[in-house]
Computed example of a mutant assay.
Amino acid sequence: MSLDAIDAVDWSTIPNPTWTQFDEPERVAHALRLLTVSTTANETGDAASLLAGGGFVCSHAAMVFPAAYAATPILLDLVEHGQRPRIKEAALGLLADALGYSPTAGHNRVDTRYDTDVPLCCAIARLIRGRRSALLIHGKYGKRLLAEAELHWRMTIEETEHQPDGTLTALATLEGTPFETPGEAEFHSPLSERPAASVWIDALTADVSGAACIQLGHIQYEALPGSVLYPAECGRREH
C-alpha cells in the first residue's frame, strides 16, 4: 500500500528550498521506500536517518521541508500498517519532527485539496488528526502527537451575523482544541486564493463535537460561509 502511495506522488513538482541534492524530494521518496520494505533494525534506522537528514526534515537544524506534507500520509500508513514495530516507531518519530520543526523561509505554506496557501504545520496537523484511532493505539507517543496536532486548529465559518458595533458573530466548526481568547487568526476567504490580513477572535465557545460560536473583532472584508481561520502564528512560522 505505502509503495503505491509513494509512486502516486509527483515528487519532482515539490520545491527544494536549499537546491542541494541532499534535500531533493525524490530522495525523500527513495527513503520512504527503504523504510517501507526494511526488514532489520539497521535497515529501518538507515532509512529513518535519510529522512531526518534532509528533504523531509533536517534534525540538526530543526527544519521541515515542503515534501513533508506529501510524505505525511505515507508515514501515517506505516504507523498503522507497517510490517514491523520498529518501522511504526520510526514513522511516529518522524511525524513528530515534521510537526514540531519550523519550515524553511519562504516555503512555509502548501496547497491542499481543501484550501490554498495553508500553513505547512496546519496542513500536516490536519492529516494527523484524521488518523486519531490509529495513533491512539501507540500509547503516550501517539497521544502526544495528537495533542500537538490539536493545537494547529482550523475553523470553518458556517453562518454570520453582523453586530451594531461593527463586530461579527459567527457559527463555525472547530477542528482541534479550543484556544484562549482574545487571539489572532489568519483569515482565508473562498473568494481569494491568498490568505487575507489577520483578524482577532474576541471570544470562543465550543462543545466536544466541534460546534463553535465566535466573536470576531472589526473585520474589513466579508466573512462568507466557507471562510476559514488558522492560528496567525502558524502562518508566520519560519526557520
Rank of each mutant, 00 (worst) to 15 (best):
L216R: 07
P195E: 09
F179K: 01
S227K: 13
M1L: 09
R84Y: 03
L75G: 03
L168K: 05
A203E: 12
S227A: 15
V208H: 12
G183M: 10
A68N: 06
C234E: 15
V110N: 02
P73M: 08
A41S: 12
A134Q: 14
E80D: 14
Q220L: 12
E150T: 08
A172Q: 09
V79G: 01
T13A: 14
G210Y: 06
L3E: 14
T20S: 12
Y114S: 14
Y101W: 06
I6N: 03
Y114T: 15
Y101N: 06
T181H: 06
F65L: 03
D23H: 06
S102V: 04
H218E: 13
Q215W: 08
A232W: 05
I137Y: 08
C213G: 00
A212M: 01
P85A: 08
A197M: 14
D7R: 13
I87M: 06
I219L: 14
I87E: 05
G106Y: 05
A212F: 01
E180A: 15
D115P: 00
A196Q: 14
M155N: 03
P195N: 09
G142R: 11
H162L: 09
R132H: 09
T20M: 04
L50Q: 15
H107G: 00
L145R: 04
A41H: 07
G100F: 09
V9Q: 05
A196L: 15
W200M: 14
G45K: 09
L127G: 10
D7G: 00
L94F: 03
G55M: 11
L35W: 01
R237N: 13
V28Y: 08
E89A: 13
A8E: 13
P119H: 04
G53M: 10
H107E: 12
V28R: 05
A96T: 11
